[in-house]
Design a binder for these strands. Structure first.
Length: 152
DNA sequence: GCCAACGTTGGC
DNA sequence: GCCAACGTTGGC
């Protein structure tokens, strides 16, 4: 089993929305590196740190898990969607995404500032300078520390 | 709202 | 294939 961090803007889709929905397809990723993690490495059962970006404060809000392997992202075919991609066809989809399922919300949101304060987390991708990747791998040791910091 | 860092596009 | 211009991300 592997561990991941996935970013979402809570104004658009928050951990609370996922708690209500139970599951969601992670549509809208339009970055090849992020897509490749989803298509090539993510497996059902992998655990995900749900990260709130562009938030006050930004940070890890809870845990989700991969509940279905990557399938074509429907939003690429939807002309009305901001994620529409004219180059994509049903025969040759450009974008795929996994389905994730709510696991738990942290008792305490672990803010980006807290992550930076914790020296043992310094290697996390999300803390690297200029890191914008919205789907990224996480070490098990870092995942375990995050659970403790989150109070679960 | 600003802007640094990064990814993508397109001219050559 | 290089790289300047442009668009986006995301913290602050």
């Amino acid at each position: 089993m592997k561990y991941w961090l996935m970013k979402s803007e809570p104004d658009v889709y928050s951990i609370d929305t996922l708690a209500k929905d139970k599951t969601t397809w992670w549509e809208g990723v339009r970055n090849y590196q992020a897509r490749n993690f989803m298509t090539q490495q993510m497996e059902e059962g992998d655990l995900v740190l749900f990260y709130h970006s562009n938030a006050e404060p930004p940070g890890v809000a809870g845990i989700a898990k991969v509940s279905h392997k990557a399938e074509p992202d429907k939003s690429q075919f939807d002309k009305k969607s901001e994620y529409y991609d004219a180059k994509a066809t049903k025969e040759k989809p450009q974008w795929l995404c996994v389905q994730v399922e709510f696991v738990q919300k942290f008792k305490h949101l672990v803010s980006l500032a807290e992550l930076r304060e914790n020296k043992s987390l310094a290697d996390m991708v999300v803390l690297q300078k200029g890191s914008r990747l919205s789907v990224q791998p996480v070490d098990k040791k870092h995942f375990d520390i995050l659970k403790k910091l989150g109070g679960v």
